[in-house]
């Protein structure tokens, strides 16, 4: 579904991604872990189409198309979804209007009829139950005055309503207490299916207790330095990132010799 080859990217001349290779198939859940500043969020935002990054080398293929050539809205319509680390507040625009505008933009793109008010409300009620959100959130402005946990839950609600092919979740677990974390994990697990790929970008192993990934990657200084199964996350939790980085450096040195 998603094939990233030798991706290099800079912000204001500073190289953040230094040769990423990644292959994600439909039905898989990947976790991308790594220390602060390793480039995790940059990768997530770049895939969603955020401006301000200069791609200096490499390619990203999404379902046979050049993802980097697509506008952010085009990516979303073709099924790419990013759950933001810091969800943005949109004052004056209700959550319901926001979700409706977004869902109908995507449906229109696929030649589907736009949902009317009643159908939309039914759909929304079901999905809100799924993520344990109160209906009062529909009439509130997008993320405005929401607590950290409510904002994250709102991202998962959008995920559930928009049903993307590729969901990238950027630090969705940060700032959540254990109950909220379980709830969100349940929501995400409910979205797992053979047609969909999920990428969890996270700093901690905690979330992975509830959502067991198929593959875990360690990102460090803009490169994937190690990939493994779910057990890799546990090792990282116990021993930190230092040993992975040391191992990678030794391997590189050996190759150079």
């Amino acid at each position: 579904m998603l094939t990233i080859k030798n991706l290099h990217a800079q912000i204001n001349g500073k190289e953040i991604l230094r040769g990423i290779d990644l292959n994600i198939r439909a039905g898989e859940v990947h976790a991308i872990m790594g220390p602060n500043g390793s480039g995790k969020s940059t990768l997530a935002q770049l895939l969603a189409g955020r401006e301000g990054y200069q791609v200096s080398a490499g390619s990203v293929d999404y379902l046979g198309r050049d993802l980097l050539a697509m506008m952010p809205e085009e990516r979303a319509r073709e099924g790419v979804f990013l759950a933001f680390q810091y969800p943005v507040e949109i004052p004056g625009v209700s959550n319901a209007l926001f979700l409706k505008t977004s869902l109908n933009s995507i449906r229109k793109h696929h030649g589907l009829t736009e949902l009317d008010a009643m159908d939309f409300l039914h759909l929304l009620r079901d999905k809100m139950k799924l993520v344990g959100m109160d209906e009062s959130f529909l009439s509130r402005a997008v993320n405005e005055g929401f607590s950290g946990g409510e904002k994250k839950r709102n991202e998962i609600l959008q995920l559930a309503v928009l049903e993307p092919r590729l969901a990238i979740l950027d630090e969705t677990d940060s700032g959540l207490d254990i109950d909220a974390l379980k709830l969100i994990a349940d929501g995400i697990n409910g979205m797992r299916n053979p047609e969909r790929a999920i990428v969890l970008v996270t700093h901690y192993q905690r979330l992975l207790n509830y959502i067991v990934p198929d593959v875990v990657h360690v990102l460090s200084q803009g490169r994937i330095v190690k990939s493994g199964g779910a057990e890799l996350a546990l090792e990282l939790e116990q021993h930190g990132y230092g040993w992975v980085e040391a191992e990678y450096a030794a391997r590189n040195a050996a190759q150079e010799r």
Partner: peptide, 9 residues
């Protein structure tokens, strides 16, 4: 960007 990332042109 937030709106565009949700499919809104």
């Amino acid at each position: 960007f937030y709106l565009r990332s949700r499919g809104v042109d």
